[in-house]
Amino acid sequence: MHKVNSRFHNVVVVSIVGVMLIPILATFVYSLSSRWGATVLPESYTLDWYRQLLTDPRFLQAFGRSMLICILSLALSVAVILPSIFVVFYYFPRLDKLMSLMILLPFAVPPVVSSVGLLQLYADSDVSIVGTPWILVGTYFTIALPFMYRAISNSFHAINIHDLMDAAHLLGASSLRAFLFIVLPNLKKGLMASLFLSFSFLLGEFVFANILVGTRYETVQIYLYNMRQTSGHFTSALVMTYFLFIFILTWLASRFGRGVQ
């Protein structure tokens, strides 16, 4: 009976995965085809669409902008959230539940509502950041906080921070030195997992980028939206390139996250 249930579960899982892979495989084949009309399979195959994409200066600039915004946002998130979590777990452990609740507030408001609010807030402000990448950095910073807090806090739960800090103090290390050279290395897996996961999520964000900056600072998602009316083969190549990059980031996040409890 157990073998029958196991086989049934395997069949169900394989069937679901197969159904999910069909559109991805179809998009990939379409991106490699030069013509695909009334035939079941493409009439011929080519890599010209990928060659056009990877040599398109507009795509390379959009990809570079997305990378820059994500890196700046995550660097700011690490600089803020890592010391904050350390203070909470070491000095005020009872605040962990409150922090876990408050850190989810960025998801309590829909992106469209948040974007309209940000536009109204900074429209008449002396600080002119609407339409610039800086407003995206600040917005993405808040989006990345929940992902980073959960992954890093799980790493803090997995280590005995008080024993590590007490041992470091007995050996003459200051709190700052103990944090940098003892606590931080033990958080490496959780930190890397949160970075890759947050990066893959931010790279695919469209609503904030479209409303707050639009074509004034074209990112990968805005580029994909603007190129939707071009050749379907070219768009498929763009989607598959983006999907491959996201898949690699997700795989890296999963690999680093295996050791995080």
Rank of each mutant, 00 (worst) to 15 (best):
N10I: 07
S128K: 15
I222E: 03
V130T: 02
Y30W: 08
T39D: 06
V87E: 13
Y45E: 04
S200K: 11
G204W: 13
S34V: 06
I161C: 03
G257H: 09
V17K: 00
F8R: 12
V109Q: 01
E218M: 15
L105A: 11
I103M: 11
L249K: 01
D166T: 12
R228W: 09
A151F: 09
A38I: 08
D126T: 11
S174E: 06
F89G: 07
M102Q: 04
L118I: 15
I246S: 13
F243H: 04
S6I: 14
A144G: 00
Y50P: 07
S125I: 01
D48F: 11
V11W: 11
L184V: 06
I143T: 08
G117R: 03
V127T: 13
A62D: 13
A178E: 00
K3L: 11
V13F: 08
D124E: 05
N210Q: 15
R177A: 10
V80H: 04
A79H: 01
F147R: 00
A253D: 03
S175C: 00
L74F: 02
L203W: 15
S198F: 06
K3H: 14
A144E: 00
I129K: 05
I246R: 03
D163Y: 10
T250L: 12
R255A: 11
M20G: 02
D124W: 00
W251P: 00
W36C: 00
F199D: 11
K97W: 06
A151L: 15
L68P: 01
L41C: 02
Y217V: 10
L74W: 05
Y149C: 01
I161A: 06
R177D: 09
W251D: 08
A123P: 00
V12Q: 03
F199T: 15
I211S: 09
S236P: 02
M165C: 11
L41F: 14
S73T: 04
I248C: 06
V116Q: 10
A237K: 00
R51P: 02
F92G: 05
G131W: 12
R228G: 08
N210C: 07
F247L: 15
M99K: 07
H169V: 10
F199V: 12
S128I: 14
L224D: 02
S236H: 02
C70P: 06
A193W: 04
V130N: 01
E218K: 12
I129R: 06
S198T: 05
I161D: 02
N154H: 14
P42D: 03
K188F: 09
F63R: 11
L25S: 15
F156T: 04
N160A: 11
R35P: 07
N210Y: 13
C70T: 14
F141C: 07
L176V: 12
A62G: 12
V220W: 09
W49A: 08
T142P: 04
L53H: 00
L180F: 09
S44M: 06
A123S: 15
R228L: 12
L224R: 07
A38G: 12
I129L: 09
P106H: 01
L32K: 04
T39I: 00
L101D: 03
A253Y: 02
S66Y: 12
F179N: 00
D126N: 13
L187I: 01
A167D: 10
V13K: 01
S115I: 07
H162R: 15
V80A: 13
V113T: 08
I22C: 03
V213E: 06
V213M: 08
A26Y: 12
I159N: 04
F28Y: 13
H157I: 07
V87T: 12
V239P: 04
T241F: 07
S153P: 04
V183N: 05
L72W: 10
